[in-house]
Design a protein around this nucleic acid. Structure first.
Ligand SMILES: [Mn+2]
Ligand SMILES: [Mn+2]
Ligand SMILES: [Mn+2]
Ligand SMILES: [Mn+2]
Lengths: 225, 225
DNA sequence: ATTTAGGGTTAGATGAGGCTAAAACAGGGT
DNA sequence: ACCCTGTTTTAGCCTCATCTAACCCTAAAT
């Protein structure tokens, strides 16, 4: 069996891989998990021994198929929990992350299945992130793109708000940036700051690049094809 | 903060104390938690350092007030989880224990409160065990007594079935021994085996002492006063 | 081709939580 | 009073996940 710490490493590597498509460096993992580099190195040794990562010393790691499956399993647990906590236990959008981040390592497969049943097999969590299916096949890359890649005048629909910080999420909700809402892009500054107006609010919001790049949006269906 | 292992020790000591009223011996804890005596000794050192147990070397421990509060906290989590899993996630009476035994260490106070709300502040779990109140005051000793203390011909109501083994619990449910049912005692053998007939079933059940002493029953209200 | 800056790995320590084997103790039997 | 037996504690060791300090490698700059 894998420890919850190992699960966190695999999840972190998976998520870093989604962003870069390159081998993941020790320092990136260290920063993500808030541990020191030597700690990461020794854990990568263990994960390599167990066949969960492919490693080239000094050049970073990638997940093996098996490692990816474990990561997807943990992410499925996490996102199902987030969905369940908001739907059935009166949690707020902004506060679910921390709870799910602990519980994801401690629920049984049975619990996972009951939660999925209670939610009628959901496919996205409250932040709009896709929930991996029960078979743990690598999911398709979702459509849309970061809001930072659009231009003044574009009208888009928010698909996902992938930030994990409760205060940032509360702020976004207060300003009408949630999955499903329509945004009109007002300005994209050279340093990545995005200013937009939400269809559900009268004023506009400005998001620094660090926040904006977690907001994935898509062009509304009518404008496609 | 306390580790989940420490929480398990405190819970075990609390529960052993409920049964004996004497100082709890190293070997009793070792057996309960399935570890060796030296392991228990060293953990008792740590718990004593933190003021959670009173210790006399070679003579066992008792919980301090603070230790008892922690134990009650963990037990509250456990029993709320058992109740929630059966009420809202379609778990069976018999299978909740294992899940609750892990999760009890990993839920937040917020989660505890939401679960208690969803259940409308329950006072007993599915096995009939009392759920400690949110203020964690030591609860009253529940009324009734082990079914082994009754005699042929007595008619009693099952108050609690405190066994933790899923197979034993399934067996008991199959034979009509659950909280709320009426039992007529048919025989109490000298070695503690109890034979009884459940009001909800036609045949009778025989329970060895080891099982029977977990079945707490009370005389029906009409016969009291 | 060297240097060098920056990140990665190795070495060694720590604190939990566990083990086995050996020593020390409590309490009952003579 | 002494001994015996069974339990508890001590001593010493292990693994896991973490750290700091020291050393080493890669890749870019000269
Ligand atoms: Mn999350
Ligand atoms: Mn799963
Ligand atoms: Mn239980
Ligand atoms: Mn609590």
């Amino acid at each position: 069996m894998l420890s919850d710490v190992m699960e966190d490493y695999l999840k972190a590597i998976y998520q870093l891989q989604r962003e870069t498509d390159e081998r993941i460096k020790t320092s990136a993992i260290a920063e993500e998990l808030d541990v020191t580099s030597p700690t990461v190195t020794s854990m990568l040794d263990k994960l390599e021994d167990r066949g969960l990562v492919d490693r080239e010393k000094y050049r970073g790691v990638t997940l093996t198929g098996e490692g990816e499956t474990v990561a997807l399993e943990v992410i499925r647990h996490h996102r199902l929990l987030e969905a369940y906590l908001t739907e059935h236990l009166d949690y707020d959008w902004a506060e679910v992350h921390e709870e799910a981040d602990r519980l994801e390592h401690h629920i049984s497969e049975n619990f996972e299945a009951r939660v999925a049943d209670a939610l009628d097999q959901p496919t996205v969590d409250p932040h709009g992130s896709p929930i991996p299916s029960a078979d743990l096949e690598p999911p398709e890359r979702p459509d849309g793109a970061s809001v930072t890649e659009f231009d003044e005048g574009d009208v888009v629909i928010v698909e996902e708000v992938a930030d994990r910080d409760a205060e940032v999420l509360s702020y976004l909700a207060d300003h009408g940036v949630e999955p499903g809402v329509e945004l009109e892009i007002m300005e994209v500054a050279p340093f990545g700051m995005v200013t937009a107006r939400s269809s559900s609010h009268d004023d506009s919001v400005s998001l620094p690049e660090s926040v904006a790049h977690h907001v994935r949006v898509a062009v509304p269906a009518e404008l496609e094809q």
